[in-house]
Design a protein around this nucleic acid. Structure first.
Lengths: 234, 234
DNA sequence: CCAAAAGTGTTATCGCTACACCCATGA
DNA sequence: TCATGGGTGTAGCGATAACACTTTTGG
């Protein structure tokens, strides 16, 4: 029996494989890092890649990305942001696969370290990223650009730091992201002037004898600031 | 016969329908406009939508978008920029379709007017956008945000103007994009200070007795400026 | 007591904003 | 000649950038 006109519109189209790929950044309080995985299937088995998965029929594209992030890091609710679509015909010699890439920011910690064991994953400094399969090096480059673009105007840097952090640590994060040294005094002034950090009574002495005060990001204050039309800029 | 392990990786995944949708902006020297189409197939036949198409196996996602733009406007080499992925499971009740959206900027002119005839398309002012099918209103909103975000830092506004334009026209374009009135003198000063416009000897008298000088965007100058690390900002 | 990082305040400069008057011309 | 939009300059302000000294404390 012939299709109705209605169904034909969809049935005449060819379905394609759709994947998500996640570029995962971390920060060890020294350097910006990238989490890479040794691919376990052919083609390119054993080579380095970012982590990904095919999108299943019963999940949205973004939940596919969440699923991947959760599965491979053991963490829940990881910050992620869409990066773009990689849709060249020949990008994957194994099959026609369209990939939607995301970049994600995680706090380095224990759960994630355990995942590193389980999945043959490894953290790489940004200057030591090895050749990756397919167009993954391109994705990484774009992810870094996107991170740089965003981190200036949105408080996403905090996603890379522990809940409690010091101002010098925050500055080192921005130094690492932008590969340049910000002025200590101006940096402190600017971030504090926005009133989005709560100063705690504790000090962190891991980096100096004197110790630096710990702060916590106050999302509520941030949102009130945005309401008032004031911009977050670092 | 059973698949090899290599093939299984791809064969175990379910292919999905992938579409591109194009949000097309135009500027009639007065107002920012959106090009919308009357849908010709079920479901939602006869309702307004942005224009799109399924991605074919032998074309990249971005060439699918180019194809759509070319087919429906009769124009070649239209400026377009990826907007994002719309991947909710239930976004299209007709089938599971993942859509990659693009926004495009075109110069209003003759070829395009003819396409308006052929395809039952219509230009809508931004404040008069009708209800659209699926998540297309969302796409339009996001496209407008993306246009606003971009136009400040990249010289994409020129894509909406004729090759030769006056400074007041350019200002009116930015007024329209940002829904606010820029200061005439400051606007002129800023754009001219970047040295990316070539002043012509001709005047355009369509808007005033005195006439305003015509200018042309000089892409080469723009690129040299970027080389030097100077930012384009309007 | 000293090395090493944390913390603080002032000044100069630059860019942005606000603003008012003259010019050219067609009707 | 006058109404309309085009074209120009300047002064004030606020944000940013540059910069040097004091504090704390573990070793």
């Amino acid at each position: 029996m012939r299709n109705t006109h209605k169904k034909a519109f969809y049935q005449d189209a060819t379905p394609l494989l759709v994947a998500v790929d996640c570029i995962i950044f971390g920060f060890d309080l020294e350097e910006l890092k990238l989490l890479l995985f040794k691919r376990k299937v052919e083609p390119f088995k054993g080579e380095w890649s970012v982590i990904g998965s095919f999108v299943q029929p019963e999940e949205s594209v973004s939940s596919a990305a969440s699923r991947v992030l959760g599965a491979y890091t053991g963490l829940d609710g990881i910050f992620m942001e869409p990066l773009g679509c990689y849709g060249e015909v020949e990008r994957d010699p194994g099959a026609r696969v369209i990939s939607q890439a995301y970049f994600a920011l995680i706090r380095l910690g224990e759960e994630e370290a355990q995942a590193v064991e389980t999945y043959q994953a490894k953290w790489f400094g940004l200057s030591a990223v090895p050749p990756l399969i397919l167009d993954h090096n391109q994705m990484v480059e774009n992810a870094l650009q996107a991170l740089r673009r965003k981190a200036r105007y949105r408080p996403i840097g905090f996603e890379l730091l522990p809940e409690k952090f010091t101002i010098p640590q925050l500055k080192r994060l921005y130094d690492a992201i932008y590969q340049q040294e910000f002025d200590r005094r101006n940096f402190r002034k600017k971030i504090l002037s926005m009133n989005v950090l709560d100063k705690l009574d504790e000090k962190d002495k891991s980096n100096s004898k004197k110790g630096a005060f710990l702060y916590r990001f106050n999302r509520q204050q941030y949102e009130e600031m945005i309401e008032k039309g004031i911009d977050f800029v670092l």
